[in-house]
Write a protein that binds this DNA or RNA. Structure first.
Lengths: 150, 150
DNA sequence: GTGCTTGCAAACAGTTTGCAGATAG
DNA sequence: CTATCTGCAAACTGTTTGCAAGCAC
């Protein structure tokens, strides 16, 4: 992961460049996004935000998140079960390993996908602009336990 | 794609094996799933179903679909924007090419992913049981038109 | 006959929206 | 000072659930 402070400043600058206003709520959310290790949901961000900064609403979190997603500074990961997670550190497509038991999401290393995308594009005639690669399974911590989706 | 008739019988047999009842609504849905070229949504299936078979409810469509998904006979593809599509022909993970303009979804050919999954598993300690690989872009038909998400 | 299945409508969850008041620039 | 942003609550959308009646077996 990049340095949280550096990433925070990067995000701040990007917003300023686009002439968006820096409200305290936004500053707090940017700081959170820049320092979030995992892939938090909107509700999780909201909860953490209220701890530091009590007068914030969930609507504002959503509004700011969709702003950042649209700007390409946050990656949104939607799942089948109404679960959306956000990644403010690596806003470009990259593969994930997702634990089907504890819902942990970790980044995986793989540079293969770029060339794969190119290959796909040629074979299909699509002009590929993005991709998504997720692996589902049991993380090391959950392999001992009985298999059961919580 | 497999022969629709053959796939229909396969689905029917699988349900019977598990001692599920064959109602006319289910037969109609199975027939649709077996012959659907694209990756229809629940609502699309419901609409087509009513055309052939007027007394069907959306709830029944959902109930039967989740049954089939759980049995591993239908693949569910969830997207960020509350869009879920179903594939009754190839219920195992396989890559897709998704047009961001017209929402068309086509299957892509790639056997690479199995070995990639294995590689990921080794590197991360995850026990990988499934995956999802999607490429986003403009399909050949939509490349001429101005880029605009409808 | 038994109990799985259906269809309806109401419930549900996460997200989005409209609007009046607050505030960054 | 002005336009953007916030916070609230209501609206919305797709999906799920509870239940009485219906029907497959």
């Amino acid at each position: 992961m990049t340095d949280p402070q550096a990433r925070f400043e990067e995000l701040t600058n990007r917003l300023r460049e686009c002439h968006y206003r820096m409200t305290p709520q936004r500053v707090a959310l940017l700081r959170l996004l820049a320092s979030s290790e995992g892939h938090p949901s909107a509700a999780q961000l909201y909860d953490r935000l209220r701890a530091l900064f009590p007068t914030t609403s969930l609507a504002t979190v959503y509004k700011t998140l969709s702003l950042l997603v649209e700007m390409g500074e946050v990656l949104e990961l939607g799942f089948s079960d109404d679960d959306r997670r956000y990644d403010g550190n690596k806003p470009y497509p990259h593969p994930h390993l997702i634990c089907i038991r504890c819902r942990k999401i970790v980044d995986a290393e793989a540079g293969v996908t770029q060339s794969l995308a190119q290959e796909m594009a040629q074979a299909s005639g699509f002009q590929v602009v993005g991709h998504r690669l997720d692996f589902y399974g049991l993380c090391p911590d959950c392999q001992g336990a009985e298999y059961e989706i919580p």
